[in-house]
Amino acid sequence: MEAEKTLLDHLLLHPQGASISDIAIASGHTRATVAKYLERMKAQGKVEYRDVGKSKLWTSSQSHKKILVAEDDAPIRRLISVILGKENYGIIEAADGEEALEKVSEEMPDLILLDVMMPKMNGYEVCDRLKKNALTRKIPIIMLTAKREMTDKVHGVKAGADDYMTKPFEPAELRVRVKAFLDKEVKERHPITNLPRIPYALPLLQKGHGEMYLLSLQNLDQYKRLYGHAKTNEAVRLIAQIIVHCAERISAKGVVVHDEGNNFLLSLQKDSAEAAIKEIQEEFDSTLLFLYEKHYESLDLKRKLVFVGEESARQEKYLLLDLSVRKLQKEDVATMAALTRALQGGR
């Protein structure tokens, strides 16, 4: 129906979520009409929501690429949103460098359009920070500038920028550049954590001379039933950050990759591997209370359960998230490499 399409189009342009009031204003429908359609679309699996205080933020369940537009000039942000919005991308906006870093942490975009001259933190510094972080270094960054000097391009390259566009730019050129990067990156990175996927990191892992570990995130389906899709993705990102930060802090040459089954494959230096794994497990355990903040009083950490419901007779119980750890042998890695080659058709 046309009304449903209008609502979905609005949500696709606001991947961070929109309230019923925002959707009503944008679509021209009453709040009651919007609420009715959203509830029906939720039952069909087309939309979902998360609670924020006393209100709900609705998001689309459809998969779409998210693009962060970090630009202090509001008319240019709007222009880029219009140009790329026609391609069904979800547009996230930031007006300064600090906000850009916050949006990347919250949303994990698939691509960033980053203005050079911004308040609070310039684009070069933002780019440099993102490229030094294992969770964000693979996000393609296209720098935007009003300058044409070669020195600006050199600065961008040194900071780690993947491409450069001079303002004003042609809409068609912007669309082509963005599509080229998104088509290239989509298979190489995990869509939630932005970590390399196992098939694309195995050659790097096999060259390492350290120890290999497989960390598996357990009971994620039960967490999703309890908190929904969006919050589950947030939990996975947070756990990935714990793993990466501990691995990099303790094992300088550590490598972390992520597969579709929510397993993390780690290559760690031999002399620091045990310490890194121990810290990851301790950090994970201490984070559980935060992940279950709405039900922390109902947690049973010994039995690894959370109880939901007011009356004990009617309470539901869910298994808590858990992180299992297994040390891999060389033959395990060889088997994984052979399986990967088979899945890729022998390439």
Rank of each mutant, 00 (worst) to 15 (best):
A3M: 06
L13T: 11
Q16K: 12
Q16P: 10
G17D: 05
D22Q: 15
A24G: 08
T30V: 06
L38G: 02
K42R: 14
G45C: 05
Y49I: 00
D51S: 12
S55E: 12
S61K: 14
P75A: 06
L79P: 04
V82P: 01
L84H: 01
K86Q: 13
E87A: 11
Y89I: 02
A94M: 07
A95R: 11
L101M: 09
D110W: 00
L111Q: 03
L111R: 02
L111T: 06
P119K: 00
N122K: 05
G123F: 02
Y124Q: 03
E125Y: 01
K132S: 15
I141G: 05
T145H: 02
R148P: 00
R148E: 13
A159R: 01
D162P: 03
P168W: 00
D183C: 08
V186H: 05
T193K: 04
E211M: 13
L214A: 12
L215C: 12
L217C: 06
N219D: 15
D221W: 02
Y223L: 05
Y223G: 06
T232H: 04
C246H: 01
I250N: 02
G261S: 13
N262S: 09
N263K: 13
L268R: 03
E279V: 09
S298K: 06
S298E: 12
V308P: 06
A313M: 12
L323D: 07
V325C: 13
K330Q: 14
A338F: 08
T340P: 05
